[in-house]
């Protein structure tokens, strides 16, 4: 069960409409290292984790990633909301507009739609937690790329917040991995 909280985790502001930037940022909505991939990856992995701590971490980080998905959606929405059609036509966002208008869609920056192959689950908790450590690093790297592409200071503030969350998640997954490895070792001994 999930509840909806009618608020963003972090306030989102943009300086001005910017469909070009929206086209880049949408990859964190529906790209391989995006927030939707992260949320689904973790929430899907919970079931085969061996310890309460691992199940807790996956549930809570997976839930936080859903809040991040909403932050990215809001960024894209606000960057496109007031943009005149002429401005949209002058950027790559025109291609998005042809299929989706101003609505959100799960796709990467090049318009390739989201696929479940972006996430994996092996049933082996150690392998799965390694997958998550890599995912957090890749998500951080994509935020670094986006920060280089963006010159809107208000957007950058939000992107920096999200980048820092990936660093914290990486830390928590690392601690979880150590605990799960220890658990697996003890199970073999006894």
């Amino acid at each position: 069960m999930w509840l909806y909280e009618k608020k963003l985790q972090y306030p989102v502001r943009v300086s001005a409409p910017n469909p070009r930037l929206a086209k880049y940022i949408i990859t964190q909505y529906g790209g391989p290292e995006g927030e939707s991939s992260a949320a689904l990856r973790y929430l899907n992995m919970r079931y085969t984790m061996p310890t309460g701590r691992a199940k807790g971490v996956l549930t809570d980080i997976g839930t936080e990633e859903m809040a991040h998905m909403e932050i990215i959606a809001t960024l894209v929405y606000k960057l496109v909301e007031g943009a005149p059609l002429e401005a949209i036509k002058a950027t790559d966002f025109g291609a998005h507009y042809a299929d989706h208008g101003r609505s959100l869609y799960w796709e990467n920056a090049a318009g390739v739609p989201w696929v479940a192959a972006y996430v994996s689950a092996t049933g082996d908790p150690v392998a799965d937690l390694h997958e998550n450590l890599a995912a957090e690093q890749k998500a951080r790297a994509v935020y670094e790329n986006l920060l280089k592409l963006s010159d809107d200071p208000l957007v950058n503030d939000v992107l920096r917040f999200l980048r820092e969350r990936e660093v914290v998640h990486y830390q928590r997954f690392g601690e979880t991995l150590m605990e799960v490895e220890e658990y697996c070792r003890q199970k073999k001994i006894f």
């Binding site: 701590r53 807790g56 809570d60 936080e64 914290v168 998640h169 928590r172 601690e175 979880t176």
Partner: peptide
Amino acid sequence: VELNLYLDT
């Protein structure tokens, strides 16, 4: 959120 994740581990 921060304390919750920290307390999980």
